[in-house]
């Protein structure tokens, strides 16, 4: 089981802030493909990966990264702090 979190417009497009899912995805990209195949709202949120960032266990990572041992994946747009 893995916790998947969504922030900002990704959260709005998918319609929920977090969910716990059972997945056999090996990489982040595999997880994205799996989620996108679920429903249109996921496909819409993940349509342009260049517009998204991903964090694994609260550290910025990338879509090619492996998911082995990861407990929390977060998807969000580029950050706008400051």
């Amino acid at each position: 089981m893995i916790d998947v979190l969504y922030f900002a417009w990704v959260r709005e497009r998918i319609g929920l802030p977090r969910e716990r899912i059972e997945t056999s995805a090996v990489t982040v990209a595999d997880l994205v493909a799996e989620l996108s195949a679920r429903e249109d709202r996921y496909a819409a949120a993940f349509a342009d990966l260049a517009a998204l960032r991903v964090a694994l266990d609260q550290d910025l990572s990338d879509f090619a990264a492996p998911l082995a041992g990861v407990r929390e994946v977060a998807f969000f747009p580029p950050m706008t702090g400051g």
């Binding site: 922030f7 900002a8 964090a55 910025l60 969000f76 747009p77 580029p78 950050m79 706008t80 702090g81 400051g82």
Partner: peptide, 14 residues
């Protein structure tokens, strides 16, 4: 700090 907070601190403004 400001340059990094802007792009690397996980905040989103609406």
């Amino acid at each position: 700090l400001m340059d990094y907070l802007k792009s690397r601190a996980p905040f989103w403004k609406k």
